[in-house]
């Protein structure tokens, strides 16, 4: 962690793996890592439930691609894509330090002048947030599309992950 090569693009999945759909970002990252080899300039990271601890990974990053469960007001499984300043970045009042999350990280990144040039958030509307390791059928049905969207976005930024031959 202390001496990683400098990545220009950070692919970051976040969420809580044991709360069903809350962990969809992690599911997507896990499947991408199992299926693809990523070029050195792309750092693929399972951010789990960390918030401000992830700030360090933004240093020197030009493109940030986030994958997370997002309340977008649609039906379960509804996909959303937010870009640039539409991605929430703010400091908010919360109950516990365990709530310090991605918007706080992005807020701090702005104040520290390390906010990436391009930020994209790929989200999916969750159905179930109860304790559980499995995704709901509605969200599970969107995982392949999310994976395609991730690969497309990376290509747009000039990266070409290679499918692993198994």
């Amino acid at each position: 962690m202390l001496d990683r090569p400098q990545a220009t693009t950070l692919l970051l999945g976040v969420g809580n793996r044991i709360l069903s759909d809350e962990g969809v970002g992690i599911h997507v990252i896990e499947r991408l890592m199992a299926r693809y080899e990523f070029p050195e300039e792309v750092l693929v990271l399972d951010g789990g439930t960390l918030g401000l601890d992830l700030l360090y990974y933004l240093e020197g990053v030009e493109n940030l691609l986030l994958v997370d469960a997002v309340q977008n007001g649609g039906e379960p499984g509804n996909l959303s894509r937010l870009e640039g300043d539409d991605v929430p970045a703010f400091m908010s009042i919360k109950m516990s330090p365990h709530h310090i999350g991605i918007p706080d990280m992005l807020f701090a990144a702005k104040l520290k002048d390390i906010y990436p040039k391009n930020v994209v958030l790929l989200g999916v509307q969750p159905e179930r947030l109860e304790v559980g390791l499995e995704l709901s059928p509605a969200v599970e049905a969107q995982v392949e599309t999310l994976i395609e969207q991730v690969i497309e976005q990376l290509k747009e930024w000039g990266h070409h992950p290679r499918r692993k031959t198994s």
Partner: peptide, 27 residues
């Protein structure tokens, strides 16, 4: 007062709410 205790709650649920731009914390 609650924060002065350093509460541990709902360890790590932080969904982004795209409609209001808020995280959902039920405060």
């Amino acid at each position: 007062t609650i924060h002065s205790f350093d509460p541990c709650m709902a360890c790590g649920v932080h969904l982004v709410d795209a409609r209001t731009g808020r995280e959902l914390n039920n405060v």
